[in-house]
Nucleic acid binder design. Structure first.
Length: 226
DNA sequence: AAACAAGGCAACCGCCACCGG
DNA sequence: TCCGGTGGCGGTTGCCTTGTT
């Protein structure tokens, strides 16, 4: 277990004095609290979070304990970057389910609804802003389907392309792609309006691998569609 | 090196549905 | 049927980190 994540306080120095005068603690969890919760759930199981909090000696609400367990302490929680496959799945599921984060999370083992929600609000909405359209608009939805998802699928395919001798076996990315519908087409290449490229495209290509899936050509094409 | 801005994410809040007494 | 407790969910906030000027 890693306790050097952001938000973990030194248990010897409580964040503020208010905690001493009120019954319930709030804010970042300490190492000791994590251990208490972890040990208690390991011994007694999940559920009945309010009584669990009291029995475990935690000065936290049941809700807080539940959230901490589900989003951080659960042994099967996956941490780290969202993979290309996961990004593609999130986009596809969101187009079908909307902001049903918990439902989307069920299709991504080890990922929490909170993590997916944060991914959407930071990465995806950022792209929407850069495209100057509303993330909930039909325009953006079309754009995601027409450009972002095909680009992702293409990159996944390239990344996972097996040696020729193994091509008959089905890769994970292929299994993900088979869940997606309908078959997606890449947009045709187009010429760039100068202002748009300098404004929207600036820095876009500098992102690390896996961060952005749109090339300048994609963005130009999109701008023409809007 | 310092100040500021933006990004990322953990945690909280409020609402709602469900369940048992 | 009503009511309180509980858990689940989506939206929001606030703080820390990282990047930029």
């Amino acid at each position: 277990m890693e306790f050097h994540e952001r938000g973990i306080c030194d248990s010897a120095t409580p964040p503020n004095d208010q905690e001493e005068t009120t019954d319930l603690r709030r804010g970042p969890w300490t190492r000791d609290e994590d251990l208490l919760l972890l040990n208690y759930v390991s011994a007694h199981g999940e559920g009945r979070w309010n009584s669990l909090a009291r029995s475990a000696g935690l000065r936290r609400t049941g809700k807080s304990c539940r959230l901490r367990w589900l989003n951080y302490l659960r042994p099967d929680v996956r941490r780290g970057n969202i993979t290309l496959e996961e990004q593609l799945l999130i986009l596809e599921l969101h187009s079908r389910l909307g902001n049903r984060w918990s439902k989307i999370a069920r299709h991504l083992p080890g990922r929490t609804d909170n993590e997916i929600k944060n991914y959407w609000r930071t990465r995806v909405q950022k792209h929407a802003r850069q495209m100057r359209c509303d993330v909930d608009s039909k325009q953006f939805e079309d754009m995601v389907r027409a450009v972002w998802m095909p680009r992702l699928a293409e990159r996944i395919h390239e990344q996972k392309k097996p040696p020729r001798s193994l091509e008959s076996s089905c890769s994970y990315s292929e299994s993900v792609e088979t869940q997606l519908s309908p078959p997606l087409q890449l947009p045709p290449p187009a010429t760039a309006p100068e202002s748009f490229v300098s404004d929207v495209g600036g820095g876009w290509m500098e992102l690390e691998q896996g961060e952005s899936m749109w090339s300048v050509e994609d963005i130009i094409w999109l701008q023409q569609q809007l």
